[in-house]
Design a protein around this nucleic acid. Structure first.
Ligand SMILES: [Mn+2]
Ligand SMILES: [Mn+2]
Ligand SMILES: [Zn+2]
Ligand SMILES: [Zn+2]
Lengths: 149, 149
DNA sequence: TATTAAACGAGAATCATTATCCAAATGTCA
DNA sequence: TGACATTTGGATAATGATTCTCGTTTAATA
């Protein structure tokens, strides 16, 4: 063993124990592939990576375990807006309140928040065209639904 | 005529002319359905709405015209993160720089921006759990690609 | 180590979206 | 306005992403 990921690996094992997930070789390799990737990988790219260590692994296994990790809180989704296209007719800059449960999206006027200030330069070479703030949480309906399921 | 949308409709006709799009009944009804919806509708929900006025319309027509409107700038997508799942291994609150062309996602530490301040109360009943700022634009690679295509 | 529940692999199924192809509608101009 | 060229619409097949099903294998645990 000279991998340099012993810490992450033992953390992973402990997180699985805490979450009541059984430890499989596939899970270890999938999880480490996600954490080792510098960016924000897609399931396909994780599959490509994992297959180098487990050529026989199934894409469905990758998807299943990613979902398991998301549900257990070991990983997150970058955005709640993945899945279906949502249209914006309001072309004026503004922000959003997003219900992570029912996917409702409510506008917040640009003037409802103070302008965002950067404390430092952005990574050089990136051309920013706009920004928006997304408040994630639960809409009133979903708050009620959760209290009385 | 007593619809109350003459203004939006004539605006739409003018925007189509400006963009070189021919005017069809389907396009009018689709566009008005999007602008009339208070929220941020999905193509399916627009299809459901439009079918009440044009029962014979095809779902493909709805999708094609939505894409046409997006390309012409008459509508926008709520988020650039729609399509495929992207995983987040960094569970600490932070923000993102997103390239709208190649979908690259780069982390910005929470401490890289000043805390966001609301100028007024949020719509009542919404339970906010977190927020994040998304800077959209072009990554260095895509900036270069566009200059030299 | 034997038992049992959970996970895996292969592939079918589903969902969202796009492509294809022919008929119908639109735009242009005489 | 009418003919013609072009674009668009409708039906449906195809695609890409994701989930489901089911029989086999593996992990947990006593
Ligand atoms: Mn909006
Ligand atoms: Mn991130
Ligand atoms: Zn909700
Ligand atoms: Zn890019």
């Amino acid at each position: 063993m000279q991998s340099g990921q012993e810490h992450t690996l033992s953390e992973f094992r402990q997180q699985c124990r805490a979450a009541g997930l059984s430890l499989t070789h596939q899970r270890e390799v999938i999880f480490l592939a996600v954490t080792a990737s510098k960016g924000h990988p897609s399931p396909e790219s994780i599959y490509d990576e994992v297959r180098r260590q487990i050529p026989s692994i199934s894409l469905a296994t990758v998807y299943k375990n990613i979902r398991t990790f998301l549900e257990a809180g070991l990983l997150r989704e970058v955005s709640p807006h993945h899945g279906s296209l949502r249209l914006e007719a309001n072309l004026i800059d503004h922000h959003h309140l997003v219900c992570t449960r029912c996917k409702a999206i409510v506008d917040l006027a640009e003037t409802d928040i103070e302008p965002v200030h950067l404390k430092r330069e952005l990574p050089s070479g990136f051309r920013v065209l706009r920004y928006s703030v997304e408040f994630q949480g639960l809409c009133p309906d979903c708050v009620a639904d959760i209290k009385t399921p």
